[in-house]
Write a protein that binds this DNA or RNA. Sequence first.
DNA 1: CGCCGCGATGTTTACGCAAACATCGACCGC
DNA 2: GCGGTCGATGTTTGCGTAAACATCGCGGCG
Lengths: 370, 370
Amino acid sequence: MDTAETTPADVPGSSGSGPRRGSGRGRSRAGGRATASMADVARLAGVSSQTVSRVSNGYAGVNEETRRQVLAAMKELGYRPNSAARALKRGEFRTIGVITFSLATTGNVRTLEAIATSAAHEGYAVTLLPVAVPTQDEVRGAFSRLEELAVDAVIVIMEVHLLDASTITLPPHVQVVVVDSDAGDHYTVVDTDQAGGTRAAVRHLLDLGHETVWHLGGPEDSFAAQRRTDAWRTALTEAGRTPPPLVRGDWSAESGYRAGLDLAARDDCTAVFAANDQMALGLLRALHERGRRVPRDVSVIGFDDIPEATSFLPPLTTVHQDFAEVGRLCVDAVLRKMRQGGPERGTTLVPTRLVVRESTAPPPGGGGRG
Amino acid sequence: MDTAETTPADVPGSSGSGPRRGSGRGRSRAGGRATASMADVARLAGVSSQTVSRVSNGYAGVNEETRRQVLAAMKELGYRPNSAARALKRGEFRTIGVITFSLATTGNVRTLEAIATSAAHEGYAVTLLPVAVPTQDEVRGAFSRLEELAVDAVIVIMEVHLLDASTITLPPHVQVVVVDSDAGDHYTVVDTDQAGGTRAAVRHLLDLGHETVWHLGGPEDSFAAQRRTDAWRTALTEAGRTPPPLVRGDWSAESGYRAGLDLAARDDCTAVFAANDQMALGLLRALHERGRRVPRDVSVIGFDDIPEATSFLPPLTTVHQDFAEVGRLCVDAVLRKMRQGGPERGTTLVPTRLVVRESTAPPPGGGGRG
DNA sequence: CGCCGCGATGTTTACGCAAACATCGACCGC
DNA sequence: GCGGTCGATGTTTGCGTAAACATCGCGGCG
């Protein structure tokens, strides 16, 4: 409407003057006019398309006056660079693929969010690739889909025995960074310092005077869970205590509840370290139902520090993980690898810290050594 | 006529054996060989690149023997179609962009997950576009970034007064579907039946004998929250009850806790409908701290049915939303719009249902009408 | 005074793929 | 047996962009 004066003929895209594409060529998708191309802009601005390209990419060596005209033409036509053509020409997509098995856990989601934000900041888009079932086949399938997909690099957020290098072929130029895995030897890995967090949690309980610490571990096939379990055992052993039998859940609150029912029945259980906050929640419920008060009778520590942890009954002492930092580092690492081309193996650890709230206290008997 | 004999000149695209790309032309990124193109495959298989294309796209009309040879050549060279070239040629990217403000709420995440899964199923990729701050500017920015991005359609998961049609320009061919918004008049909207769920919740409490139902609402700028609040008020009014003053939170458990502290102080408050489960969790804690037992003294209902709701103290009665279905329908709708080109306004509602657990009971006095 | 260099711009070309069209041989029916 | 047809394959072309190279005009300098 504001372009009322514009004579129909001098808006090129549509029939300009020559029989360019007027015939309905191009993709006149869905009844709408196709988008303007550089050539359209060039014609309107009275320059060559190469000059439009130069302006579009912010090159030096374009006369200020010319630049202004081109920009005006772009605006008038609503020109947007065609990213497919760009990608084809440049040989890169400016896109990072993220493969993830589940978005059910806080950690994965927060990491993903941070990745997306960091990537956007760097001018990269993020393509999400969900893997329905975490089987090797599925993962392999995801990777091969990803190859055809328009991505320059991949970040894998996943427990990964599934990531078997021998079965997965990636185009040589696609760099990979893995979160939360044991794949340290073959890949670049970014993770939180789970061992450190676990140690801090166990120490905290021991310092409060507990004889030992029980552990409600995560599923067997999770390396994160395994690492927490290992660290728990080590911390206990180092302190000269005997690790009680391991109790396992599957990350869900429900499984924590079931395990908690057992734990509640044992009088010698005065302190439990749960491998995540959800299970701690279920545990809390079980203990409550069985009349074991927290923290008076039993102390509980979680892992993750989900926002709701402050509202548990009682507010949960837990190990905080900085997922935002993990996401950021992933993007950094993968971009660095892309630019340098180097393999750059090894693991980057993001510190964790213990957040003490109200679910831990000295043991009932004569705790606190006094 | 096959590879070896091919005179350099007769395979134009890449000059047969000349200084093709070996010299580091093309994108010899990261030290690796560039990927094989159709022409490479064609040469190896001794066919034209068009035939390779036909095989690659599963066209009929290719001799079985030829097809086998082409497939073998593809395999040998590790050929992967270049999606940029494909997109350029076809004029579509096979990608759906998802704009979302936050991945902090269960609903958004679950919806996103379902979208990604459905999209993958349809052969579409999902590009994630996070919007840091939910201001109109930010949203507009996201949209314009999205335009340059390689997407054919957009799904917006967002509370959206921010989605002001007048300020947002989209390429005409990019279809939009909105989740969780009031934008019904201007956009295609998919949402859960929040009013229905709310009504069910209020009815349930009334049926148990409560005189009225208090409401812990979500933030003012959320339409989802607003709709739940409206429906609560309506349900109460229809039943001839007087809606008590509205109490507001911000979706977080912490805010539920704060509000709960107030609510706990009122003896006339025997039933609360919280606008989401997180706030209900905080509410539960506040009530517990103040010695008001749930459900004996006060009944509580949430909204969402997050997995942890079963492990609250007590297990939470709540309104279940089928986010997976929402995601699926979004993809369906947006794909349908793309193919038909139609505007197709209107709202699709996914049913919700009340899940009764242990946080609701007749009121303390002489509830249950007897 | 003609040539060089340089800044500004235009022209050509190729990225990889797939429609559109061309070709080519075999087989059919009359 | 010859035009027609059909299945299988090849050739040309162009999508929108940007690198590489070409051109053009101008001012300075030997």
